[in-house]
Simulated scan of single mutants.
Amino acid sequence: MKIGLDVGSTTLKCIVLDSKENIIFKSYERHYSQIKDKTVAMLKQVQHELDCEEYVEISISGSAGMGLANSCGIPFVQEVYATRIATGKLIPDADVVIELGGEDAKILFLTNGLEVRMNGSCAGGTGAFIDQMASLLNITPTEMNELAKDYDKIYTIASRCGVFAKSDVQPLLNQGAKNNDISASIYNAVVNQTISGLAQGRPLEGNIVYLGGPLTFLSELRKSFDKTLNTKGICPEDSLYFVALGAAYMSQNQKLNLDFVISLIENYATGGEFHSSKALFNSEEELEQFKLRHEKEKVLYSNPDEYTGNAYLGIDAGSTTVKATIIDEA
């Protein structure tokens, strides 16, 4: 029995293969940064649902899995290599892999050797970006996908940064743009970010494979890629699990006692050094002096029920809020 765990930035995936490398268990869920607890629960679920052997072959992969694997002495498989192994085994004629995760994005060029392009520290154009934009529209990502099926026009929206994208989307909302058009425009922005930011001029051609949560769950995002690339990409069965599958395929070095592995993970503790800024105030006295200094400058208020005379109304219609005030002649 082989177990592959993909500990991603936002989700946890598990694959279990039998002796003939058939999938006998798979699970996908968000971990909400509770990586240790979710991993233990998932492995216990494997034990409960399957007639597990005492010793299993197990490997961990994923962008958030290295620390867990190294601390617990569990073999680690780099996620790009795991993706390549799974793709080569299941889709041997693939030329390009486009994978969008929760907070990362990557393109694997498989023809004439392996070349990998990944995003840096910014999560622009990933699942987190799509979640943020859906929240701005006050809808779910699933509802956004449905809205994008019926659009009339595409707007230009920045996707390299959620802050810049919000500054593009908010005026559109204020001006009455349809959510259908904005939803489709957000997907188009993700496509542009992936192609321009990662491919960087290298053609995306041949058999293109779509992997990762956003490209699995959002059909209109796949269609946006297809339209821009003038192709028909492949979103294979188990597209959510290719990294976990690759880790399972690579679980061949040693067998570990599954109960012992679960115990190691249960006792896993993260550690690190953190730097913080200096305190704003060194004492309660400094804080009180600050308060007294700022309390000297106050806006004077009058009772409007007792005022007679000219009054002046000022309105600030901002991007997300409206503020108003009235002042007298004094």
Rank of each mutant, 00 (worst) to 15 (best):
Y187N: 06
H48P: 07
T270L: 12
G4W: 05
S9P: 04
L240E: 11
V77D: 01
D95L: 03
S71H: 14
Q34R: 14
E115K: 03
V209D: 11
E285A: 07
G62S: 05
E220A: 09
S196K: 14
D328V: 02
Y81F: 13
A41P: 06
L90K: 10
M1I: 04
G102P: 00
A69D: 01
G212T: 15
A158G: 06
L114C: 05
D305R: 14
D305N: 15
V169L: 14
G162R: 05
H294Y: 13
P75Q: 12
S219D: 15
E53Q: 15
S183I: 10
T231C: 09
N174M: 13
N112P: 08
A177T: 15
Y55Q: 14
A184P: 00
T87Y: 07
T216M: 08
S121H: 12
G318N: 10
H294V: 03
N22P: 02
L110R: 00
N174G: 15
R202Q: 13
L68Y: 05
I58F: 08
F109G: 09
L240V: 03
V77H: 04
T10R: 06
N138V: 03
Y32R: 07
N310T: 14
D316Q: 07
L218I: 08
Q45T: 09
A248K: 02
E29T: 05
G271M: 03
K36I: 12
F260K: 12
Q78H: 15
I98N: 00
D168V: 14
K153E: 15
L5E: 03
H48G: 07
V190G: 15
Q47I: 09
E286W: 10
C122Q: 10
E297Y: 12
N70K: 14
F129P: 00
G102K: 04
L172K: 00
K44H: 09
V80D: 12
L300H: 12
E285S: 07
L300Q: 11
F260C: 10
L5N: 01
K223D: 13
E266N: 13
G162H: 05
E288M: 08
I208H: 01
L114K: 01
G197N: 10
L204E: 02
E273K: 11
L292T: 07
I265L: 01
H31R: 02
H294S: 06
A148N: 02
L100V: 02
N310M: 11
C14T: 11
I23W: 02
Y210H: 03
N267F: 05
L287N: 07
C161L: 13
I23P: 02
Y187W: 03
T140I: 04
F129Q: 04
E237A: 11
F274W: 00
G309E: 11
R293F: 12
L280K: 09
G88H: 12
Q132R: 12
Y307W: 05
F260G: 06
L110V: 06
Y312I: 08
Y241I: 08
M42R: 09
G246E: 10
T39Q: 00
K227D: 14
G120I: 05
S33E: 13
G212F: 00
S224Y: 04
R293A: 15
L280I: 13
I98G: 05
S71Y: 07
Q45P: 06
R30H: 02
A324Q: 05
L5D: 02
Y55H: 14
G318A: 12
N138Y: 14
A134R: 09
G62C: 08
F25P: 01
V77M: 02
